[in-house]
Structures are given as C-alpha cells and as structure tokens.
C-alpha cells in the first residue's frame, strides 16, 4: 500500500500535478459520505466538481484544506498529497495548510469590517511584514474590484453588492498568496451578471493559481474549467467519483453512460 502511493506520487509530479486525493473516504459518524475518491489536480488549471445534490462534492472540496476538521463528527480516511506531503499525516498542521490552500464559500461572507480590513485580515493573522496598503491594493486589483472600491476602502464590506462581496472574499483569499483556491459554488447566490464577472475572474486567476470549483451549474463547469470530475451518489448514499477528464471530453464524449445521462439532464 505504502509503495503504491509513493509510486503514484512520482508519476504525478512529472505530469505537473499539484494536489491529489488517494482513496479518500469521509465519514460523518457512522455514515460514509464519500467513498474511495481518487483525483488529480493539475497546476494552473481549473478543476470542476459536478454531480447531483448530496453526492459529496462539497465534502470532497473541504478535504483539500482540512475544513472538515471543524466538524466534530467528520472523519477523513485516505490521503491528500500536496507537494509530496500527505495533508492528513500527523505532523501536518491544518492551520498552516489553510494559508496555502484558500477557500471561497457558497454565500459571500465578508467580515463585518471595512473593505480594507477584510483584505488585510489574512495578512495580519499570518504576521505579514510588508507594505499592507500595497498588498491590499494588489489583491483587490487581482480580484477585479479595485476600481469599484478604491474610494471607499473604509466602508463596511457588507455595504457592497452580492457579486462585489464575493469578489471581496476572493481578494481576501488572494491576499495571503495561496497556491490553490477552493471555491464552493461561489456563484450560487449571485445574479447572472455577477456570475459572469466571477467566471471571467477565475479564468484570469489561473495564470497564477490552481482552482478547484464545486458547481451545480453545468454550463458554468463547461465555461470555466479545464478538467471536470463527475460524482454521483451510490445506493449506500455515499458519494463516489464516476469519471474525470478533460472538460471538453466530459461534456461531448463521456466514457460513462451515467455521466452522459446527467449532463444531458436525464436526472439531476
């Protein structure tokens, strides 16, 4: 078993893989929510996780920065390999992981602080020594929000519109310069125009970052992602991975019939 994992890792590094899940299982108490997921994510690409409700896409996503640690009953089996390190081994500190693997949530959740302080939050927490103003400006520019907020940085983040709030949350995540950004249905609370802005932003961000996005919206997966992973719920109610591949291929010529049925809307 040990050997197998190491071998796979070596192969992956050559394929430019930044993070991968191996035999990932998640339990909530006695209930198995995710079953044997194996997934590779390539550097500077967008991977989308799609699938019907309850298939465990968000649960899988939350394994990548150990956010499931915060749920008392949750237990994760298997491993997540990031830079050759298993994130679930005993010597890895979850808090440290989260500053290199950031997360954007389903509902925009800026802090009830000023726009400036929202972006500066992660920097201050992690003891940033550089020029704070500069870092805040840079992050807001990267998140395509700077022009809209540059004259009102002191205003509360909660005064912004939903789409702006979500871009503020992205800016907040970018500020601490993570490697990977996890996005959990980032547009589900937004209108189509705000959604489009976020999608364009995602395409711009992958020059520097790797993004894993969970989405309910298949058009969105088709528009923003390079690779797509399709998950389903098994008869034991545990989510499992059906197939993964090039987004183009998944949406036009999936290997599995189940994938095709889902994508063509025969079930949801």
């Amino acid at each position: 078993m040990e050997n197998e994992i190491t071998q796979v890792t070596d192969k992956e590094i050559s394929k430019n893989i930044i993070i991968s899940a191996r035999n990932l299982n998640v339990y909530y108490g006695n209930f198995r929510a995710v079953k044997d997921v194996n997934l590779d994510v390539k550097k500077n690409q967008v991977l989308s996780l799609i699938g019907p409700s309850g298939c465990g896409k968000s649960t899988v996503l939350r394994c990548f920065n150990r956010m499931n640690d915060l749920i008392l009953s949750a237990e994760v089996g298997g491993s997540i390999l990031y830079n050759g390190i298993n994130l679930y081994s005993a010597e890895v500190d979850a808090t440290e992981i989260r500053s290199s693997i950031g997360m954007v949530f389903q509902k925009p959740n800026p802090f009830p602080k000023s726009i400036y302080d929202n972006v500066a939050f992660g920097l201050r927490i992690n003891g940033y020594q550089g020029d704070m103003d500069e870092a805040v400006e840079k992050s807001l520019k990267q998140a395509a929000l700077w022009d809209e907020v540059k004259d009102r940085l002191k205003d509360s983040g909660l005064t912004l519109s939903g789409g702006q709030q979500q871009r503020l949350c992205i800016a907040r995540t970018l500020a601490i310069e993570p490697d990977i950004i996890l996005m959990d249905e980032p547009c589900s609370a937004l209108d189509p125009i705000a959604t489009l802005a976020i999608e364009e932003l995602i395409r711009e961000l992958i020059t520097k970052y790797t993004i894993i996005i969970v989405t309910h919206n298949m058009q969105q997966a088709a528009r923003v992602s390079d690779e797509t992973a399709f998950l389903m719920v098994g008869e034991d109610r545990a989510g499992y991975l059906v197939e993964t591949g090039d987004t183009q291929q998944i949406f036009t010529n999936p290997k599995e019939e189940r994938t095709e049925s889902y994508i063509t809307g025969r079930f949801s």
């Binding site: 920065n65 808090t95 992660g122």
Partner: peptide, 20 residues
C-alpha cells in the same frame, strides 16, 4: 460563516475568537 472564513484564511482558534 465568519468563523469559517477566518479559519480558511489560516487563523488559529484564538485568533478567530479575538478578531472575528
């Protein structure tokens, strides 16, 4: 959601309490 956002930015439990 505030706590989650704070943890996701790499803050410790006490930092989350103190700042959020």
């Amino acid at each position: 959601s505030y706590r989650q956002a704070s943890y996701a930015l790499g803050s410790t439990k006490w930092q989350t309490q103190k700042y959020v």
